[in-house]
């Protein structure tokens, strides 16, 4: 399974696993969206701590979920971005969306 989803108190955490590219992002997106549509969470957390690799498809995944959560009236937060993904996250301009947080920062 490429994404582990848990929820409590109206918040969903989607822990992304392994490598995110155009191929794997599709299944991740479908799983997260179907859960989010069911629960309509106040916050959706995307946890990147177990992501070994990602290309710009990972950025697309975050941007798409940002829009999805706006439609559902909730917030998106990106958490636990490991050091090796910081450059691509910085390049993406995702900072401007205000979704990146320093919560539970892990070193890898």
């Amino acid at each position: 399974m490429s994404v582990k989803i848990s929820h409590e108190n109206g918040k969903i955490t989607a822990k992304l696993m392994g490598e995110i590219d155009h191929h794997t992002a599709k299944a991740m997106r479908e799983e997260i969206d179907s859960e989010a549509e069911k629960i309509k969470p106040a916050v959706l957390y995307l946890d990147f701590s177990e992501v070994q690799f990602m290309d710009s498809s990972g950025i697309g995944l975050v941007m798409g979920r940002f829009r999805q959560m706006e439609l559902l009236g909730g917030k998106l937060r990106v958490i636990n971005v490991p050091e090796h993904l910081e450059r691509i996250m910085a390049l993406s301009g995702l900072g401007a969306l205000g979704v990146l947080t320093n919560e539970g920062k892990v070193k890898k």
């Binding site: 992002a25 997106r29 290309d55 710009s56 498809s57 950025i59 697309g60 995944l61 941007m63 798409g64 829009r67 450059r87 691509i88 390049l91 993406s92 301009g93």
Partner: peptide, 21 residues
Amino acid sequence: PLFTTMGGERAGLGFAVMQSF
């Protein structure tokens, strides 16, 4: 950067990443 013909799920950053990396 950010140009894409593919809509919401593509970030339009492919060439920007190649150039930067």
